[in-house]
Computed example of a mutant assay.
Amino acid sequence: MNSGVLSRYLDYEFLRQLSGRSLEPRGLVSGNLAGAHKSPSSGFAVEFSGHREYVPGDDPKHIDWRVYFTRDKYFIKQYEMETNFVCHLMLDISKSMRYGEEASQKMLFASRLAVSLAHSIVRQGDKVSFTTFDTKIRGHIPASNALPQIIRMSQHLDETDADDTTDLHACLSEFSQRMARREIVMIFSDFFGDLETLENAIQRIRFNKHDVVLVQVIHDHELNFNLDGMTRFVGLEIDAQRIAQPADIRSAYLKAVSRFNAELADIATRNNCDHVLACTKENPGAIFWEYLNQRSLQNRRI
């Protein structure tokens, strides 16, 4: 792979700023590798815990072939024990994520956040998977705690384009079927869409005790509406255009954005999720240093 592709998505300044900080799971962790986190299980052997139906993206090596030959369906063996966790990174690649230029484009900003965070998670010995979605799941890289995972993520992103609308409810509902034990799900999106159906999907994930983090990626223009002069507003996910003077609509726009952001934050609070507001104008390392610091303090109180 061209080294320029990796450097496009791996933010070394982000990694430097996060040095010494780690993503810590909330509560007890079940896994199948030795790691740095407390486990609900005891003993020294990986224990079989049951089956679940195979879904695309699962590692075929965990298929129980004896069950397949008796039932003619694929089932995955599930184990639980030791002390690693799995963090699933989900990136919204819909058209609205294409807003912005160069490093401030939402999709590129979110991609760098995801890849750099994945690097930190792998370096601490835990597993990370990566999924891209819009109206449906477009790509999935199964969980791994090996550094080549970062290369696979970068390659996938370099081959990905934002060219559709968003259906968060459908994608999160589908993805929730792939998770069994308690894991972390981090969703990188602007979350523009129906928040009621989004909350239903989050509740489904939280019902199974998974840890959910909503990383709301938003452009400075969208957050603060700092535009001047007659402007043509072009819909990215709808076929519509409007020409307006920003000063005439700034007050109403800012009130609408404030309501939307407050509602998303309320959804996170009601469902015991984390909400991270990541403005593309801000330093990504500083955003996540503060978040991981707060998360660590909260974990100590649990």
Rank of each mutant, 00 (worst) to 15 (best):
F207H: 15
E263P: 04
G235E: 04
N271C: 14
A268E: 01
N293T: 15
Q245I: 05
W289E: 14
G229C: 05
P246M: 02
A240N: 08
R259T: 05
E222N: 08
L254E: 01
L214E: 10
N261D: 14
P284S: 06
L277T: 12
D228T: 13
Y291Q: 07
R270A: 12
L227T: 03
N208P: 03
I243V: 15
A201R: 01
Y253K: 03
K281N: 10
L227Y: 03
I267V: 14
V257L: 04
H219D: 13
G235T: 00
R242S: 08
K255R: 12
D211P: 06
I218F: 07
G235C: 00
L292M: 06
E263M: 06
Q216G: 06
F260V: 07
N293K: 09
A265E: 09
A244D: 02
V213S: 13
L254M: 00
N224W: 03
P246R: 00
V276K: 05
N283L: 02
H275T: 08
A240Y: 02
D274G: 05
R204T: 14
N272F: 13
L277A: 11
V276A: 06
R206L: 15
E282G: 06
P284L: 04
V217A: 05
P246L: 04
L254T: 01
E237S: 11
I267K: 08
A268Q: 04
T269P: 09
E222G: 06
D220M: 08
R250T: 03
N293H: 14
R242C: 03
F288R: 02
S251H: 13
D228W: 04
I287E: 12
S251F: 07
H275F: 14
A252R: 05
E290K: 07
A256D: 15
Q203K: 11
L277F: 05
E282P: 01
Q216E: 12
L292I: 04
L264F: 11
A244I: 02
E290N: 08
A256I: 05
A256K: 13
A268S: 09
I238N: 11
G235F: 01
R270V: 07
V212T: 10
D248F: 05
T231E: 01
A262S: 13
F260Y: 14
Y253S: 04
N272Q: 11
R270Q: 11
L264C: 07
D220G: 14
N208D: 15
A262K: 11
E282R: 00
V215H: 08
R250N: 02
R206E: 12
E222T: 08
E222K: 07
K281E: 10
G285N: 08
R250L: 03
F260E: 05
A286M: 10
L227R: 03
G235R: 03
N208I: 10
T231K: 02
W289Q: 13
R242K: 08
V217M: 06
R206W: 07
I243D: 11
H219K: 02
A262Q: 14
W289I: 15
D248Y: 02
E282T: 12
D239W: 02
M230D: 04
M230W: 08
N271S: 10
A286I: 15
F288K: 00
N293Y: 15
E290C: 00
I267C: 13
I238S: 14
I243P: 01
F288Y: 10
W289P: 04
